[in-house]
Amino acid sequence: MCDYTQVEYACGHLRYTVRAWCVKYQETHKRCPANVVAIEYRLDEKCGTAFI
């Protein structure tokens, strides 16, 4: 399983960002189930403007 960070925004939406790709993904480029290893709160950001 690949390691992900769960990111929570002020609007309540969640996004999952990859922390590290697992060996299986690196070999096949097929995504496997996410393994959430951290939670990050961005309560001062709205999800629609988080990447601008």
Rank of each mutant, 00 (worst) to 15 (best):
A38C: 10
C47H: 15
A10E: 13
A34R: 14
K46M: 15
Y4L: 03
V23A: 13
N35H: 10
Q26K: 10
G48Q: 07
V18Q: 00
H29F: 15
T17I: 08
V23M: 12
H29V: 15
Y41C: 07
C32P: 03
G48H: 07
F51L: 00
R19V: 07
A20L: 06
E45A: 05
H29W: 15
D3H: 15
V23N: 11
A34L: 15
F51R: 04
I52Q: 03
Q6P: 01
G12H: 06
Y9W: 09
R31N: 05
Y4K: 02
V18L: 00
A20S: 13
C2R: 11
V18T: 01
F51S: 01
T49Q: 14
E8I: 12
E40Q: 02
Q26N: 14
G48V: 06
T49G: 13
D3C: 13
L43M: 14
F51V: 01
V23Q: 12
N35I: 04
F51M: 02
P33G: 03
I39A: 05
E8T: 13
Y41K: 12
W21C: 10
R42F: 08
C2K: 12
K30R: 15
W21H: 14
V18R: 01
E40G: 02
Y41T: 03
T49C: 10
R19M: 03
C2G: 10
E40C: 01
Y16R: 01
Y4V: 00
V23D: 13
Y4M: 04
